[in-house]
Amino acid sequence: MNAELIMVISEIQSDISAIENDTTLYEEINFDKRANTIDFIDFHIFDRIEGLQQNTESNKKLDILKQQAEKIKFRLEEIDINLFKKIRQNITAGISLPFKYLIDKYIGAASSNINQPDKIGYDNLDAFVNGLLAYKEIPEPTLDRASEMVFYQQTPARIIFELTQLAQLTPDDIFFDIGSGVGQVGILVNLISKATTYGIEYEPAYCNYAIACASQLNLANVNFINSDALKGDYSKGTVFFMYTPFEGRMLNDMLLILQKEAQKRPIRIFTYGPCSPYVVMHNWLNCVNGDGNSLYKLYEFRSLDN
């Protein structure tokens, strides 16, 4: 075994020992630190071990280190599984703490990302939300998308928190997520604000998944409807959200539908992604928090009667 290999193996062993001996990682409350450590195991321990295994002869020491790391990762993930199970039970029973409090408690410093403008990608807040809300693997779609429909992409959790903060939703609001995918936006908005939410989703497998997620949490005021968004009933809606569910003529037709609703009552529309620069061009809407041209900023639009 050459000196360089010995040194790398020693570094890996030292990293594994440091994780194993850090008792704070095994305290339920330290989800954020645990998530960072699991990423470190995946991308700095497993990756190095696998790289060495591909470029060296069979080495028993590497096999032992990989087994140690796998056991530690499994133990850390078990803590999170039990944590999510406990929180879900409390939500189902109606005895959970305010959801924002739970986020601050378990995510800690990572929750500050909620107010970071133009941040790109996902973070530990998404890992927490995914672990809490997902009851099984997300299903594969069963229908072909129309040419102007955009493929499903999860809304970053920080954007949903920012939305509820900007919208100041109340239990009297009726919130619509247009193109709701597997339902995380509608569920989170309800958990944070208690507003009644509706998700309109074209793909039945996603819609059924969302219904099951809301059902397991006993959320009576969270609703998902399997429908073409252009055929939805929006007559009760007060706040609408679109994470660019479609483009072109479909997006224009959706805005025409919402414009007709705005003629009956004031409405607000929140957008995220490539649809925002298109929405800002419509003169029946006023963008109240920017120019509408960033793809990575949440925008609020109000109908001119609002």
Rank of each mutant, 00 (worst) to 15 (best):
F176W: 04
N218I: 01
N226H: 10
T170C: 07
N226K: 05
F224R: 08
S215D: 14
G181L: 06
T197W: 09
T197Y: 09
I200Q: 07
G183M: 04
I187A: 02
G181Y: 05
D173H: 15
A220T: 11
I187L: 05
Y206F: 15
P171W: 11
G199R: 03
A210R: 11
A195Q: 08
F175S: 11
E203W: 07
N221W: 01
Q184P: 00
G183V: 05
A212C: 01
Y209R: 11
D172E: 15
C207T: 00
I187E: 06
Y202S: 11
D177G: 08
P171I: 06
A167L: 06
S227P: 00
N208D: 13
I211C: 10
Q165C: 07
L188G: 09
Y209N: 13
P204V: 01
F224I: 00
N221C: 00
P171D: 13
N218S: 13
D173Q: 10
A212K: 14
T164M: 08
A214G: 10
L191C: 05
D173I: 00
G199N: 03
G199M: 02
Q165M: 12
I192R: 04
D228C: 08
D177I: 03
T196Y: 02
Q168D: 14
A220R: 14
S180E: 06
N190A: 00
G186P: 07
Q165D: 15
I211N: 13
A229S: 09
G179K: 05
A205T: 07
L217C: 05
Y198Q: 05
L217Y: 09
Q184L: 10
D173E: 13
T196E: 14
L188A: 02
A214V: 01
Q168L: 11
S215E: 15
A167H: 13
Y206D: 05
Q216E: 14
I174V: 14
P204W: 04
G179P: 11
P204K: 02
P171T: 12
S180D: 08
G181N: 06
Q168W: 00
A229W: 03
N221E: 14
I225T: 07
Y206K: 05
S227Y: 03
L169W: 11
Q184F: 12
V182T: 14
K194P: 00
F175P: 12
Q216I: 07
A214M: 05
N208Y: 04
N223I: 01
E201S: 05
Y198E: 02
T170F: 10
Y209C: 08
I178Y: 09
A229G: 13
I200E: 03
Y198W: 09
Y202P: 01
V185E: 01
F176Q: 07
F175C: 04
G183E: 08
C213E: 12
D177T: 04
I211P: 02
G179Y: 07
N221P: 00
T196A: 07
Y202K: 10
L219P: 08
D172W: 02
T196F: 00
Q216R: 14
G181H: 06
E203M: 13
V182A: 08
I200A: 08
A195H: 09
Q216W: 00
V182M: 05
Q168K: 15
Y202W: 08
N223E: 10
A205E: 13
L217K: 11
A195I: 03
